[in-house]
Design a protein around this nucleic acid. Structure first.
Length: 188
DNA sequence: CCGAGGATCATCT
DNA sequence: GATGATCCTCGGT
């Protein structure tokens, strides 16, 4: 059962929390790769850490699309990160997926990541993109399609709220969410 | 175990 | 021309 657009249209903090336990799926030509979402971060309107803080540009245009759109950006000269556009259409808000617990296509992930260590396959926003084969080609894609989407899952652990990682502005905001005690969260 | 530094480039100033 | 929602390696302890 795929998540529908109304799920993504909820307030961004609710979407960030609510995504935990659901499954990110990429059906590619080589096969299907998927993982349970165990860590997310919210990026909101008037949020100095958000790419949309200074308005719409060619780079962040996908953030201003309909909720349920993928926003994939390239950073540090070598990495991609995957976000889900959330909230009211046009508000420029999104949820960064920071870590997954691998559940399908693990051999493909190991090949893509060049490591057999399951714990290191998807524990980080750039790692999970590499593991699932997510690149800038997915920027602007609709998650209501059949290539990349979210499948309903069962959440088995409690949610922890914490400050976000790797940002300079907006450090104090409690916009990071992860599953308590889950071994695949990128950092404690 | 931990911290420092390098890789590498699109985007914005 | 500087910076970044990162990751990996390497060296010291």
């Amino acid at each position: 059962m795929k998540l529908k657009q109304d799920f993504y249209a909820a307030p961004t903090l609710s979407v960030a929390r609510g995504l935990l336990g659901h499954v990110l799926v990429h059906r590619g030509p080589d096969g299907t790769r998927a993982g349970v979402i165990v860590e997310t971060e919210a990026y909101r309107e008037n949020d100095p850490a958000s790419h949309a803080f200074r308005g719409k540009t060619p780079r962040n245009a996908a953030m201003f699309g309909p909720p349920g759109t993928a926003y994939v950006y390239f950073i540090y000269g070598m990495h991609f990160c995957f976000n889900v556009v959330s909230g009211e259409e046009g508000c420029g808000e999104a949820v960064l997926i920071r870590a997954l617990e691998p559940v399908a296509g693990i051999p493909l992930m190991q090949a893509a990541r060049k490591t057999a260590n399951i714990k290191l396959l998807c524990s980080g926003p750039a790692r999970l993109c590499q593991a699932l084969g997510i690149t800038g080609a997915f920027n602007g894609a609709s998650l209501t399609g059949d290539q990349i989407y979210l499948r309903r899952g069962l959440r088995k652990q409690a949610v922890v709220v914490a400050p976000r990682i790797g940002i300079t502005a907006g450090r104090e905001l409690p916009y990071r969410f992860y599953l308590a005690g889950n071994a695949f969260v990128s950092r404690k």
